[in-house]
Write a protein that binds this DNA or RNA. Structure first.
Length: 738
DNA sequence: TTAGGTCCAGTTTTT
DNA sequence: CTGGACCTAA
C-alpha cells in the first residue's frame, strides 16, 4: 500500500476543498479525529476521504467500513461515493451501527446463538414484552414503571452490561436486575433481539470468537465514523474491537453538537479516542459555509458558555448579514401569529415556504404553531410523528409476517392472536400463557399442544393456529409482495378495516405495505449474499429487519413547498434559509427537567447551538410572557440563552428586551415555570405566587411573573401590561391581591 | 368483547 | 388541554 498521496489539486475528487478539508481527506495512514463544526462540510470530507482512499488504492471498496447513525446519512454517503467513483457500492460496509451489526449477526447467527430468522424488537414491541413479563413475575408496576424498566435495560446494554454484570445493592435495583435477566431470557426463547441487543450481541460475538474477530479486523483496515460525538460506550467498544491494534479509525464529530446524552451518548468518547488510538492529527474544520457571521457569532457566543469543550470557533467569509431578530410575545398565540405574519411577508417577497423552518424544544409546542398556520392557510409539514412501519395496522400485518417467519415470536403472536377479534379473550390468553410457562415453551408451541391437529375454520385458538398454518403453507414459494398481500387479507385485517368507519387510511396503508414489499424486492434483489461467506438470508427476514431498522424516514426532506416544523433534535444536520426558534423561555429552553441532570444545562446549550446554526440567512428568536402548558397558563421569563448573545448582533423587533433574565441568579433553585410540587411549598414561603393578579397604586393591575431573592430580600417581577414589566422589592412596594 | 368513562401524567429519541 | 391506560357496564 502506498500512503503517499499521488493526487493533485486538479483531482476532481479534491477540487474545491479548503486547506483544512484537504488535509483531513488526505491524512496519512493513521487514526485521526476531525472536529467538524456545523456547516463545515463534514459529510463532504467523509465521503471524499473514502473516495480518495479507494482511488489511490490504499484500500479496496470492501476493505473499509463506514458507520453512521441514521439511514439517511448512510444513503447520502453511498450516493456521493457513487457520484465520484465508478464503483459498485453493493458489497461495501456502509451503514448504521444497527444495520451493520444486524448484517454481521445474520452472517454468524449460529455463533451468536440466534436463530437464522431472528426478529428485531422495536421500542413498542420491547415495552409490551416488558409489561407482559412483569405481570408474569408479579412485579408492582407502580414501583417499577415499565417505561423506566425499559430505559434501565437499554441503558445497561448501551453501557455494554448484561444483567449479571450490573451492580445492585438495594432491593429495588436487585429487582430491576432480575427483570432484566428474565427479559433477556424471554428474548432468547422468542428468538428476538432489541436494538441495543444487536450491538451488544455483535460486540460479544467479536470478543468471544477470535476467528470471526480476526477475519473482520484484517478485512476492515479503515474504519470511518460519522457523528462520533453521539456514540455510546458500547458503540465505542465495538469500534475499538473492530479496529484492533492496526487499523485506522477516522472519526468525524462535533462535541458542540452532542445532544443525545440522555440516550447514552458519551461526548467523552472523543477524548478517549485521542488517547486510546494515539491520535496524532486532530483536524479542526472551522470554516462555515452556511451562515452569515451575525448568526455564527451568536452561536459562538452561546456555546462559549460551556466549560466542557474541545474548543473550536466557527468563522465565515460571508458577510455579517442580517441581525438576529428577537421578538417578545405576549403569549404563545401571539408568538405564533407573529411568526405566521413574518412567514407570509417573506413568502410574498419570494422566499419559498420549504426554505423556512420552525424549530421548538418539545413536540407539544407544535400545536399552537400548527393552529396558526392552519388558520392562515399556509401549507406545513410536521416531522416526528408516527412513521410508516410504526402504524398500528402495519405492525399488525408485519406481526403476521413475523409469525410466518418464526411462530415462536410471542410478541408478534400476542399482537394479532385476537386481532381481528376471533373470540380469544383475556381468559383464554391467560390459560395459554400459563400453559406456556409450565411447559417452558413459546405461546405458539403451547397453542399447538393444546389444539393438536385442530381442523381449519375452528373458533378461538383452534382457528388461529389453523390460520397461521394455512399462511405458512400458502407462503411457500410465493413472492414477498404476495406474502404481504396474504398477511393483510387472509388474516382478515383488510376486511376488518373495511367495516370500520375511519378505516380507509388504514387500508391504503396496508396496500402501501404491499407496494413497499415490491419495491424492496426489486431494489434488494441480488443483494442478499456475497463473497465473504455471509449466509443467504431469505427475503422475508430481510424485509422484516428493514421494517424495524428503517421505520420510514423520520427526518425532513428539505425543499418541499411547505413550511418545516420540527424539534431542534430533528433539525440536526439540516439547514434553512430562514429559521424561527420559538419558546425561548426558562423552563422550556433550557428545559426544566434538564436542570436536574448532571451536565444537563450544557446539553441544553448545545441544543440551542444546533438550533441557531441551522439558519443560513435570517434567524428569529422568540419568547412569550405566558403560554398554555398542561392546560394551565404558565408565566416564563426569557431564556438565559438570549442573554448570552451580544446585544450588537440582535435586533429587538418590539419594545425593549424585558427584564434581563438574570445572570447570576440560581435557576436551579427557583425554576421560573413552576411545577405542581413546587407551587405548594412556595405558597408558604412566598406571599405572592407566580400568576397571582395584583394591584399597585401607581402601575395599576398586573400579574406576578417571577421573583428572586430570599425571605428577607424578596423581589417580584410583575407584568403591568401597558406599563411593562417591573421588578418590585416586597419590602417597599405596596401590592394587594385582586 | 366493546364502547365509553375516568384518571393521570405530561423533554428531547438517529436505531 | 391532550392522549393513553385502565376500568366498568352492556
Amino acid at each position: 500500500m502506498n500512503s503517499q498521496p499521488h493526487t493533485t489539486m486538479q483531482d476532481p475528487l479534491l477540487a474545491g476543498l479548503n486547506n483544512k478539508q484537504l488535509e483531513a481527506v488526505t491524512l496519512p495512514q493513521q487514526s485521526a479525529l476531525i472536529l467538524a463544526g456545523a456547516g463545515s462540510g463534514k459529510t463532504r470530507v467523509l465521503t471524499a476521504r473514502i473516495a480518495w482512499l479507494i482511488q489511490t488504492e490504499q484500500v479496496s471498496p470492501t476493505g473499509l467500513l463506514a458507520v453512521t447513525f441514521t439511514n439517511k446519512a448512510a444513503k447520502e454517503m453511498l450516493t456521493r461515493i457513487t457520484a465520484s467513483l465508478p464503483i459498485n457500492t453493493r458489497g461495501m460496509w456502509v451503514g448504521t451501527f444497527h444495520g451493520l451489526c444486524n448484517r454481521l449477526l445474520r452472517a454468524h447467527h449460529r455463533e451468536a446463538g440466534l436463530p437464522a430468522s431472528f426478529q428485531i424488537l422495536d421500542i413498542a414491541d420491547q415495552l409490551s414484552m416488558i409489561k407482559r413479563l412483569m405481570k408474569l413475575m408479579n412485579v408492582d408496576d407502580e414501583k417499577f414503571p415499565p417505561k423506566q424498566v425499559q430505559n434501565y435495560i437499554n441503558g445497561c446494554k448501551d453501557e455494554g452490561l448484561r444483567a449479571h454484570a450490573v451492580d445492585a445493592y438495594d432491593p429495588h435495583s436487585q429487582k430491576l436486575r432480575e427483570i432484566f435477566e428474565e427479559y433477556d431470557k424471554q428474548c432468547q426463547r422468542d428468538g428476538v433481539a432489541d436494538f441495543a441487543e444487536l450491538l451488544l450481541r455483535c460486540y460479544e460475538l467479536l470478543e468471544r470468537d477470535a476467528n470471526i474477530r480476526l477475519h473482520y479486523q484484517s478485512r476492515f483496515r479503515y474504519i470511518l465514523v460519522d457523528e462520533f460525538q453521539d456514540t455510546n460506550r458500547l458503540q465505542y467498544q465495538w469500534l475499538k474491537l473492530l479496529a484492533g491494534k492496526d487499523n485506522c479509525m477516522f472519526a468525524v464529530g462535533d462535541d458542540d453538537q452532542s445532544i443525545y446524552g440522555f440516550r447514552g451518548a458519551r461526548v467523552g468518547n472523543m477524548r478517549d479516542f485521542e488517547t486510546d488510538f494515539n491520535v496524532q492529527s486532530v483536524v479542526k474544520l472551522e470554516e462555515n459555509y452556511r451562515s452569515h457571521s451575525n448568526i455564527l457569532d451568536a452561536a459562538n457566543a452561546i456555546i462559549s458558555h460551556n466549560k466542557n469543550r474541545l474548543g473550536k470557533n466557527l468563522w465565515t467569509s460571508a458577510g455579517a448579514g442580517e441581525p438576529v431578530r428577537v421578538y417578545q410575545a405576549y403569549n404563545d398565540n401571539d408568538e405564533a401569529q407573529f411568526i405566521v405574519d413574518e412567514i407570509k411577508m417573506l413568502h410574498a417577497e419570494g422566499t419559498e415556504l420549504g426554505e423556512m423552518a420552525m424549530l421548538y424544544r418539545s413536540n407539544a409546542q407544535s400545536r399552537v404553531l400548527e393552529h396558526a398556520l392552519f388558520s392562515a392557510n399556509l401549507p406545513y409539514r410536521v416531522y416526528g410523528g408516527l412513521r410508516f412501519f410504526e402504524r398500528a395496522e402495519i405492525k399488525h400485518a408485519l406481526a403476521y409476517m413475523r409469525l410466518i417467519a418464526n411462530a415462536n415470536d410471542d410478541t408478534a403472536l400476542l399482537r394479532v392472536i385476537n386481532f381481528p377479534a376471533r373470540g380469544i379473550g383475556a381468559r383464554s390468553l391467560e390459560q395459554l400463557q400459563e400453559a406456556a410457562r409450565t411447559q417452558n415453551c413459546s405461546l405458539w408451541q403451547a397453542a399447538i399442544n393444546k389444539v393438536g391437529n385442530g381442523k381449519a375454520g375452528g373458533k378461538g385458538i383452534d382457528g388461529f393456529v389453523a390460520l397461521i398454518r394455512q399462511m405458512v403453507d400458502e407462503a411457500y414459494g410465493i413472492s414477498l409482495a404476495e406474502l404481504a398481500e396474504l398477511a393483510t387479507t387472509l388474516s382478515g385485517l383488510k376486511a376488518h378495516y373495511q367495516n370500520e368507519k375511519e378505516g380507509e387510511d388504514r387500508i391504503a396503508n396496508l396496500e402501501e405495505l404491499v407496494t413497499a414489499a415490491v419495491a424492496f424486492t426489486n431494489q434488494d434483489f441480488g443483494n442478499h449474499s456475497n463473497a465473504d461467506g455471509e449466509t443467504e438470508q431469505d427475503l422475508l427476514t430481510q424485509f422484516l429487519s428493514h421494517a424495524s431498522l428503517e421505520a420510514g424516514e423520520h427526518q425532513a426532506d428539505v425543499g418541499r413547498e411547505a413550511l418545516q416544523l420540527m424539534t431542534v433534535h430533528a433539525s440536526k444536520g439540516l439547514e434553512f434559509k430562514v429559521v424561527f426558534i420559538s419558546g425561548l423561555e426558562e423552563g422550556l429552553c433550557p428545559h426544566e427537567q434538564s436542570t436536574y441532570e448532571a451536565n444537563g444545562l450544557e446539553e441544553e446549550r448545545r441544543l440551542m447551538y444546533v438550533a441557531v446554526t441551522r439558519a443560513r440567512q435570517r434567524l428569529y428568536l422568540s419568547h412569550a410572557q405566558s403560554r398554555m402548558l398542561h392546560g394551565q397558563v404558565r408565566y416564563g421569563i426569557p431564556s438565559r440563552f438570549l442573554d448570552e448573545i451580544p446585544d450588537e448582533l440582535l435586533k429587538h423587533l418590539n419594545s425593549k428586551p424585558v427584564a434581563k433574565s438574570g445572570y447570576g441568579r440560581d435557576y436551579n433553585e427557583l425554576p421560573a415555570i413552576m411545577s405542581k410540587q413546587q407551587s405548594s411549598t412556595q405558597k408558604s414561603a412566598m406571599p405572592w405566587k407566580v400568576g397571582q393578579q395584583v394591584a399597585h397604586n401607581k402601575f395599576g393591575n398586573g400579574v406576578v411573573v417571577s421573583y428572586e431573592g430570599n425571605a428577607n430580600d424578596m423581589r417580584v417581577q410583575v407584568n403591568f401590561g401597558r406599563e411593562g414589566l417591573k421588578w418590585l422589592a416586597l419590602e417597599f412596594a405596596k401590592l394587594t391581591a385582586i
